[in-house]
Amino acid sequence: MGCVTATSIIPKATTPTLNRPNTVAVGTIVWLGSEVMFFAGLFAIYFTLRSMAPELWDFETSKHNFTFALINTLILVSSSLTCQFGVFAAERLQNRSTGWKPNQWGMVEWFFLTYALGAIFVSGQVWEYATLVSEGVTLSSNAYGSAFYLTTGFHGLHVTAGLVAFLLVIGRAFAVKTFGHKEATSAIVVSYYWHFVDVVWIGLFFVIYVLK
């Protein structure tokens, strides 16, 4: 017995494995493109009404609590950061923490923190609405009220839907036997949505509270 050679009977693949973009991620981005157009329409409403009644804007925007809105904005922006750390954990396929330190946290812990920050933001919005209504700014009071509540209200509904999405993704991480690529993908696309909603709020904050 000299040398024994074994020839593989399995034919080699003719083409190398290709690095294709994830179809779920691509579909989410396309859908977010349509969401951009939706909010573009709301911004158009706001700018059109403002150009028609500048003195009304002068009067009503003076009722804003800028400091409160700024803090609420910073809370939402920080939730985008915690959300991204959750995505990094999901990309390591780590759903639960291995210790108390934040760099040992899994996706679930980071997403719970993100959920809490997002919930604080929505609560802050509700409190701000209540304050403004008590000062006479309502959805039907005048053009400013309509523009303000339509733009920020639809954004608030999107944030609330994002909070539900976080709960569903967290639930999947608990329900699944082994945390795999499918679960990581849903975590990643929810983070796309969350970052999108965050960026829309930065635009709204700039237009409503800074430019007035």
Binding site: T14, T15, P16, T17, L18, N19, R20
Partner: peptide, 10 residues
């Protein structure tokens, strides 16, 4: 980015 020739090109 895809690290190879597309099948459509072969």
């Amino acid at each position: 980015a895809q690290g190879g020739i597309m099948p459509a090109d072969r």
